[in-house]
């Protein structure tokens, strides 16, 4: 296991270096002077321009610039946002909890609904239920979620008036943000219950929109993995021993069928981030996705540069952990 760990780490390092190169190159590959582009139409005196250039280290030779960039990033200094004048790292951690809360709730919804549906479809193979679930899940899988989010708003916010359309919570509640996860924060508030309801009503539509593609993927994956397991000899043996059908399906079947499903769920970090960019834009959810899109519009290059670096690093680390967990659970893989 230790050797496998070292091997995987050695594979991850070039990828991480590549990511730093991409985000480093980003600001420098843009045609024209990045400093002029950042200032935009406001204009600035030559002294200010020179000052900015040296603040971003753009006046030094490229290899030195790269060294400084990586060195600063390792120290946690990711530059300063031009629009908000706040350190990128500070703003990132604030917004990251918003995205994390949304992503985790979406994934939990997807698992809670997708897993049982997939098992049921496999057990009732070729039934009407199986066909309709597979059709629905293919539609869910093909869903343009930027449209799906708008449709949810149209039905539940505009027509029915059940949910608010934007933000994380009504401003009227005084909630201490000690974790950054509003669903937990509210319990330290004086009006815990109404604040919680407000947070849930803000969260539910974005979570459904973001959870749809994972839900469809999980349902399809569970079904096919379960079908494979149901055909195994040990399932027949378990039945022959006299165990009940339900017991066999859930105890022996599901446990084995879950391995590939869990891997797929673990590797969904990228899908969730992509979905979050779109979902947050629709629901004005103050997470990293909305932040990045706004930064692109406002040409806030330090934010784009460091945001990309941070998100890619998180995804690489998550994927690595999934791989390691998989290898730990499945010794056959380690030898390869």
């Amino acid at each position: 296991m230790f050797r496998y760990l070292l091997k995987r780490l050695a594979e991850v390092i070039p990828t991480l270096i590549g990511i730093t190169l991409i985000s480093f190159a980003l600001i420098r590959l843009i045609p024209g002077d990045p400093v002029l582009l950042m200032i935009g139409e406001r204009g600035a005196s030559p002294e200010v321009l020179a000052e900015m250039r040296s603040a971003y280290g753009l006046d030094k030779p490229l290899p030195v610039q790269y060294g400084v960039f990586v060195g600063n990033a390792l120290k946690g200094d990711l530059g300063t946002s031009i629009t908000s004048s706040r350190p990128v790292s500070e703003e990132f951690s604030e917004r990251f909890t918003a995205t994390l809360e949304l992503g985790v709730v979406a994934l939990i919804l997807a698992i809670l609904i997708g897993l049982p549906l997939g098992v049921l479809a496999a057990v009732k193979r070729n039934s009407l239920f199986d066909y309709s679930l597979m059709t629905t899940s293919l539609i869910g899988y093909s869903m343009p979620i930027f449209w799906w989010g708008l449709i949810l708003i149209l039905i539940f916010s505009v027509q029915l008036g059940w949910t608010p359309v934007a933000g994380r919570m009504d401003v009227m509640y005084d909630v201490p943000h000690w974790t950054g996860f509003y669903l937990l924060d509210v319990w330290k508030s004086t009006e815990a219950w109404p604040a919680f309801k407000s947070a849930v009503s803000h969260l539910i539509l974005p979570a459904i929109a973001l959870g749809t593609i994972p839900l469809a993927t999980i349902a399809r994956m569970t079904r096919s993995s379960m079908l494979e397991v149901l055909g195994e000899d040990y399932m027949r043996t378990a039945r022959a021993k006299g165990l009940s059908r339900t017991r066999v399906i859930f105890l022996h079947g599901l446990r084995n069928a879950l391995v590939p499903v869990i891997t797929v769920i673990g590797l969904m970090a990228g899908t969730i981030v992509t979905g979050a960019v779109l979902t947050e834009t629709i629901f004005s959810w103050p997470g990293i996705g909305l932040w990045l899109v706004d930064s692109v519009r406002q040409r806030d290059y330090p934010v784009i540069q460091s945001g990309i670096l941070l998100i890619a690093t998180i995804i690489i680390v998550v994927n690595l952990l999934v791989d390691l967990a998989y290898a730990w659970a499945n010794p056959r893989l380690r030898g390869k």
């Binding site: 991409i22 899908t271 960019v277 990045l292 990309i308």
Partner: peptide, 8 residues
């Protein structure tokens, strides 16, 4: 390329 989510 695969480490970066598609939209990013």
């Amino acid at each position: 390329l695969m480490a970066l989510p598609s939209i990013l």
